[in-house]
Nucleic acid binder design. Sequence first.
DNA 1: CTAACCTTTGTCCATTCGGTCAAAAATGCG
DNA 2: CGCATTTTTGACCGAATGGACAAAGGTTAG
Lengths: 210, 210
Amino acid sequence: MEGSAARPRTRIQTQKRETILEAALEVFSTHGFRGSTIDQIAAAAGMSKPNLLYYFRRKEDIFTTLIQRLLDTWLAPLRELDDEGDPLTELRSYIRRKIEMARDYPRESRIFANEILQGAPRILPMLEGELKQLVDEKAVIIRGWMRSGRIARTDPYHLIFSIWATTQHYADFDVQVRAVLGPDRGGDGRFEDAARFLEQLFVDGLRPKG
Amino acid sequence: MEGSAARPRTRIQTQKRETILEAALEVFSTHGFRGSTIDQIAAAAGMSKPNLLYYFRRKEDIFTTLIQRLLDTWLAPLRELDDEGDPLTELRSYIRRKIEMARDYPRESRIFANEILQGAPRILPMLEGELKQLVDEKAVIIRGWMRSGRIARTDPYHLIFSIWATTQHYADFDVQVRAVLGPDRGGDGRFEDAARFLEQLFVDGLRPKG
DNA sequence: CTAACCTTTGTCCATTCGGTCAAAAATGCG
DNA sequence: CGCATTTTTGACCGAATGGACAAAGGTTAG
């Protein structure tokens, strides 16, 4: 049977494909799609290039499979934003979850950043579809909070963008963050500091006036 | 005489090197260093590959020359942050300048983003040197404003990071921003909307309490 | 055991890419 | 003009890369 079929049958296939995707995440996230080679991924996965190509016919198949799977994980925090909750608490939790993801899953963040930076040639449909739809939904919720005066009136889309930007910054631009903070402050504490700063900024910035 | 010498003598050399750097900015900013080819740059500059290599011996020489020149432009807005001015006004102007740069010079932003995403292999010294030094200076100023109670107490480094992140987001992730905003709101107005949102967020978020 | 199927590998190929080189063309100068 | 210097180009090279393929090695069920 064809190994690279969409639905792997055997346990060994599932497992090896998993190994490959993990290796691909590592490689793609640091070099981008074009900068990564099949050999690198194969080496990281501990197998030969032809063997890897038995499980995924083309380099691009690895990438698209990987990124499709990642998108769900990546959007999970926003999905959890709850209409029913207290607005400032909800937003604070969202920020905290996003910072934790930047800390714990920086590769996932970087792989998206890399792709989008280059014009999102392979994932534009996802951005215009799944992503836009989710953001539209949540923007309605946020606007509702604003209308009822529970947070300050502002643009919900740019609010979401700014949360994405500030939190993912600590994954995507980690080298720069550490370079600027220097050896003293660039340690593990930087995520906690960032979380505190951002929660303060957004909570104070969004607290309803008057 | 050797064309690729550090100091070009003739007018034609200066001019052609300029043409190459402009073309390189275009190419590097969309594909990153590794993803860009000398042929692409040569084509964009309207000359043959060997001719380009007459002016710059190696691909990396083009990149480092370009990025060294860009750094000054890129840091100019932060340099202008003035000790003497009114804190909130100064920060508001800084944000506005940065948004304008994201709108008018997105390629410059992307070239840095690309490089840093990949671990800043070619510019790490600049980040640890020039950049860190400038940020350290400005952090002192900002901390002074906090001490005197003119803005809320918080972490000046993360404040600067968050301004970078939010403003550059509109250059680096432009495709995503436009995809999410959709055809209606994704037009030219998005930068103005972003500027308004960010000024409000930071001014309200930093206004001294009590 | 053996036949059918799954997995792995060595080898090979066409293309792309960074870079070289020598020769040709253009330019500047006395 | 005539010579020297600068600029441009076509041809070429070795290394890297994505991918194909057939043969070899394993595994499993009857």
